[in-house]
Design a binder for these strands. Structure first.
Length: 558
DNA sequence: GATACGGGCCAC
DNA sequence: AAACGTGGCCCGTATC
């Protein structure tokens, strides 16, 4: 059963069971969705324009659903598959194309508009439909059109699966953003104070940074702002140490007393500006916990498939770059546990699976793929890893060249897979992931200049498509895993308490926060989700995707 | 005062 | 040792 749903902006909305029933007006949308979700029988698939506009409000109202069809995410996949990445994909745009009307631009979403935003009672209409249009009818029409287009594809199975798991990703994103990653404010504070000194008044440099800046000035015989690359370069040049840039690896080679001070300053300044006290105030919610502890939750705004490869992005808060120095502050609540599952060496394993390279698959059947590669290559593990990464990223300089030759001989099908993708990119053609996500063609390709400049662009596009076939498929593996894990966690008996489940996701890693006595079940659910993912994506392949799963009260304990 | 852009560094 | 893919974000600087 599929139920189309639109909100009225006042807490109510309209529902329609597609194909059979008539539209129905409901005064309380959350209650209506909850009732139908909890009804006997298989769960409905909720059809809506964009998860960001509806589901965060449902989650805030305590409602969770199991399945959805997100027309905006699906449309982006369909358009991309057709080589039309740049065309708008919101509901109004699809409807306009169906009716030969002018196509509206997609709405611009700003920081703080997603799950992190204040309750909005199923906010204003973001569909971009013309005023007065029957939104429910338009949604049903667009849904039917998308189903038809998906079925018409020759490789429809892949893209249908991708649309389904990506829609589920929207559900997971809203739920994770709502629940948040547990982060203890007091520990975060302690880490910052140890490194930077006590919290300064707004706009001031913390004591440690101010001291470093002064010592840098002394060492270079002039006052300067260490945050200004041009000032630093000028001062170093005057001191007899000209540098081409102030990048850390450049500074590391400079033999001047100011260099180590500058490096330390840059490291700490970044921590302060990117993840300091101001960051915590904006992105980490706080509430009292048992025994007087303050409990915090980091709430990033996820952007599902926000990256061309289908990886997720985040909007604000730097959600995908929680620095290692800070992970000690990520702690389970008292009596709860963090379950962290990390897919190690995901991309080379994906390459082994999609290329069907038997030798690489044999290595990918091992727990440590790179160690086995080293045996094949006859060198050490680090060199084997460099060679593999060079093949997937398109590196040609430095150490990589001789290693690549070895790789090409040992893993011909794997290398042919990425080389073929690279050639497509260099020739301006698109490539597809395992499930059918399609690479965009670069802007202005047809007017590319001949000669060096054009060649550089062509080679860069080759590296992009070379990497796309691997990275985009790895992102699909992660999406399927997340969707499968969500389903399994929802099926646990007795149900997990409010706020328990997946609380963080970044590319190839998930973090779950569960009551300590449910951690074993959570670990089992992760393992089962991995098996299901592998069987769904690569049935019969010997490639393994080992998930390193750790249970602790702390994120940094690995 | 707002905006655009590049440098630099964080993550996977 | 430092060009090799995808990003986000802060800062300084230039510009309107």
């Amino acid at each position: 059963m599929r139920i189309a749903v639109v909100a009225d902006g006042e807490g109510g909305g309209w529902l329609q069971e597609l194909g059979t029933a008539r539209p129905e007006r409901v005064p309380d949308l959350a209650e209506a969705v909850r009732d139908r979700e909890n009804a006997a029988g298989p769960p409905p698939r909720w059809v809506w324009d964009a998860w960001e506009d509806l589901y965060p409000d449902l989650v805030r109202a305590g409602v969770r659903v199991r399945r959805s069809h997100d027309t905006a995410l699906t449309e982006a996949l369909l358009l991309g598959h057709d080589g039309r990445h740049e065309e708008p994909h919101s509901l109004g745009a699809v409807w306009a194309r169906l009716h030969g009307r002018p196509v509206p631009d997609d709405p611009v979403r700003r920081t703080g508009e997603g799950a992190h935003a204040q309750p909005a009672l199923f906010g204003a209409d973001r569909s971009t439909l013309p005023p007065g249009t029957d939104r429910l009818a338009a949604l049903a029409e667009v849904h039917d059109d998308q189903v038809r287009r998906l079925e018409a594809l020759t490789d429809s199975g892949g893209l249908r699966l991708l649309a389904a798991v990506e829609s589920a990703g929207g559900l997971a994103a809203a739920e994770m953003s709502h629940d948040g990653l547990p982060l203890r404010p007091d520990i975060h504070d302690r880490l910052l104070t140890e490194l930077l000194g006590p919290r300064p008044v707004a706009g001031q440099r913390p004591a440690v940074l101010a001291d470093l800046a002064a010592r840098i000035g002394d060492a270079l015989d002039q006052e300067l702002n260490p945050d200004s690359p041009s000032q630093v370069m000028r001062a170093l040049a005057r001191a007899g140490h000209p540098v081409p840039s102030t990048r850390s690896w450049v500074l590391r080679e400079v033999e001047h007393p100011a260099a180590p001070l500058l490096l330390r300053y840059k490291e700490l300044a970044r921590l302060h500006s990117a993840n300091g006290w101001a960051w915590r105030e904006q992105w980490v919610s706080e509430r009292p916990g048992p025994g007087g502890v303050r409990l915090g939750r980091f709430h990033p705004d996820y952007v599902v498939a926000g990256v061309v490869s289908g990886r997720w992005a985040t909007r604000g808060g730097g959600g995908l770059q929680v620095p290692k120095a800070l992970r000690g502050a990520v702690r389970a609540d008292p009596g709860w546990a963090l379950v962290r599952a990390d897919a190690g060496q995901l991309e080379p394993r994906v390459l082994a699976a999609v290329s069907g390279d038997l030798a690489l698959a044999e290595a990918a059947a091992e727990e440590d793929l790179y160690a086995r590669l080293a045996v094949h290559v006859g060198g050490d593990r680090d060199r084997a890893k460099i060679g593999m990464l060079a093949a997937m990223y398109g590196q040609t300089t430095g150490d990589a060249a001789p290693l690549l030759a070895t790789m090409r001989r040992l893993y011909p099908r794997a290398l042919d897979h990425v080389d073929t993708a690279a050639r497509a990119g260099e020739e301006g053609r698109a490539v597809r992931s395992w499930l059918g996500r399609t690479s965009p063609r670069p802007h202005g390709w047809d007017t590319l200049p001949s000669g060096t400049e054009g060649d550089r662009t062509r080679r860069a596009q080759g590296r992009f498509t070379r990497n796309f076939v691997v990275q985009a498929t790895a992102a699909e593996w992660a999406s399927v895993l997340l969707a499968a894990l969500r389903v399994r966690l929802a099926r646990l008996e007795p149900a997990l308490p409010e706020g328990a489940g997946v609380v963080f996701f970044v590319h190839d890693e998930v973090v779950l926060h569960v009551p300590a006595d449910r951690a074993e079940e959570a670990v089992r659910a992760v393992a089962e989700a991995e098996r299901e993912t592998r069987e769904l994506l690569f049935p019969g392949s010997p490639v393994r995707f080992p998930l390193v799963t750790t249970v602790s009260d702390e994120h940094s304990q690995i």
